[in-house]
């Protein structure tokens, strides 16, 4: 929590009334500062992101360095520094329904370059989980495929690449998408045809299931 009601910053009215009055989808609070009434975003979304990611997002001063280094920024509907800005502004829906969350490749370039040490990639990773949970996710392929990979680990203890990719293609009805590529890979011995089962897979399966069925983020 960086926003706290101090003797100087005092919340005058409940946020709910103001939200209705402003007609905006974001939560706002009105504060009295040196005899002026100021309206500012309610930090609930910022708190949510900071709590689940463990990253102090509010330190951002919008230098654009994350966006400048991002290899896929030009394909994003909201570029990285704007994602951070919208989080600070409390634009929950805008951020969680953006395609940008799923365009990100988690290459971590933004995070290591941030002068304020903000782990932007991790913020995006956290926002992904929140967007799935809130039913706002703009694209579901990544999460779906990641889920299949974890299914495979749950079953065998190790990733069965061929089985996982086949399940993905079948569910998308893309039966021949990898045909030429796949044949070349088989010819070159680049595909493991059989899964690897670990001995202790039963224990591991129980552990993975328990976490997946839990409600944490």
């Amino acid at each position: 929590m960086i926003w706290q009601a101090s003797p100087v910053f005092r919340i005058r009215r409940p946020a709910k009334d103001l939200r209705a009055a402003s007609g905006k989808s974001i939560d706002i609070i009105e504060i009295k500062f040196k005899n002026k009434n100021l309206i500012m975003p309610h930090p609930s979304f910022l708190d949510e992101i900071e709590k689940y990611s463990g990253v102090t997002v509010a330190q951002c001063y919008q230098c654009y360095r994350c966006t400048n280094g991002c290899p896929v920024a030009r394909d994003m509907d909201i570029v990285p520094h704007r994602v951070i800005a919208y989080i600070i502004k409390g634009e929950r829906e805008k951020v969680l329904s953006s395609k940008a969350l799923w365009t990100c490749l988690q290459c971590i370039t933004c995070s290591v370059r941030c002068p304020n040490g903000i782990d932007i990639a991790r913020v995006i990773e956290t926002a992904r989980r929140l967007s799935i949970e809130s039913g706002l996710a703009a694209r579901r392929d990544t999460r779906f495929f990641d889920g299949l990979m974890i299914d495979s680990v749950e079953r065998h203890g190790r990733l069965y690449e061929l089985g996982t990719i086949m399940r993905y293609r079948l569910s998308k009805k893309e039966f021949f998408k990898d045909a030429a590529l796949g044949l070349d890979m088989i010819r070159r011995g680049r595909i493991g045809l059989a899964p690897h089962n670990i001995r202790d897979r039963k224990t591991l399966r129980a552990i993975i299931r328990e976490i997946r069925e839990g409600t944490g983020k």
Partner: peptide, 25 residues
């Protein structure tokens, strides 16, 4: 002996704890 998948890039999308537990094994 009997190593397992570390969760790679897939686990973080599913659950933070899964990421830590799979690698921790």
């Amino acid at each position: 002996d009997d190593w397992s998948c570390c969760g790679g890039a897939a686990a973080p999308t599913i659950h933070q704890d899964l990421t830590d537990v799979l690698a921790a094994r």
